[in-house]
């Protein structure tokens, strides 16, 4: 007997509470990625993406991504322990689960109001985000990029974070007035003769249509 399936049918937040108290490894084949999470006694011992060990922050990002856009085959292999743990995590699985579920809910709650992934923002007053420690920490990391202007898409690549999470943090930063949309100044100027000729054309068409 084995626990297996596809994340598109059973979400990671549904399957993880079942396997978390057990000892073994949770394997996800997600497109080109091979994800392995080693569990022991309710704790996440270590995790790898294509053999690269994940940091605690990295684990949260990967879990959030799986929870938001989860797809790919998964299986749980009982009593499989890591031969070595290059970067020991020792994270309580229930805390990780709760944290990711909360984040997922928060993002989905304001989903429609999130900025476009490629809308560019610029830092104006990061001190306004100080009351939100998580947001402030994010802004500190994003500072050099946001000082020049950065989008959720570019920041997610630079900071190795899930794009929708960056969109959510930018949404909050903007609400607090810590960042603002970076717009571009128009350099090209149309010849006024051309603009007036076009205006005359449209006005003529408008008159013709009303006759």
């Amino acid at each position: 007997m084995a626990i297996f399936g596809d994340l598109k049918d059973i979400g990671v937040l549904d399957i993880f509470p079942i396997i978390a108290p057990q000892n073994g490894r949770f394997v996800v084949e997600d497109g080109g990625r091979h994800l392995i999470f080693y569990l022991r006694g309710g704790r996440l011992v270590c995790a790898y993406v294509n053999d690269t060990p994940l940091s605690p922050a990295g684990v949260e990002e990967v879990f959030l991504e799986l929870a938001r856009n989860g797809r790919g085959r998964f299986r749980f292999e009982m009593n499989q322990a890591p031969t070595q743990c290059n970067a020991a995590l020792n994270l309580p699985a229930d805390e990780l689960l709760l944290r990711v579920a909360t984040l997922k809910d928060e993002i989905e709650h304001v989903e429609k109001a999130l900025p476009h992934p490629r809308a560019t923002f610029i830092l104006v007053n990061p001190e306004k985000a100080k009351a939100d420690p998580e947001l402030y920490t994010f802004l500190q990391h994003a500072w050099p990029h946001l000082a020049k202007g950065a989008s959720a898409e570019s920041l997610s690549l630079e900071l190795k974070m899930v794009k929708d999470r960056v969109r959510y943090l930018l949404y909050k930063a903007r609400l607090l007035g810590a960042i603002q949309l970076k717009t571009r100044e128009r350099r090209r100027k149309e010849p006024s003769g051309l603009v007036r000729r076009m205006l005359a054309f449209f006005q003529r068409r408008s008159r013709q249509a009303s006759v």
Binding site: K112, P115, H116, A119, T183, E185
Partner: peptide, 21 residues
């Protein structure tokens, strides 16, 4: 009104990506 957040997303995308009036 339910479509306005999407309109704002598009609008902000346009404003930040291009100098088109």
């Amino acid at each position: 009104p339910g479509d306005l957040p999407k309109a704002r997303q598009i609008f902000e995308f346009i404003l930040s990506q291009s100098e088109v009036p």
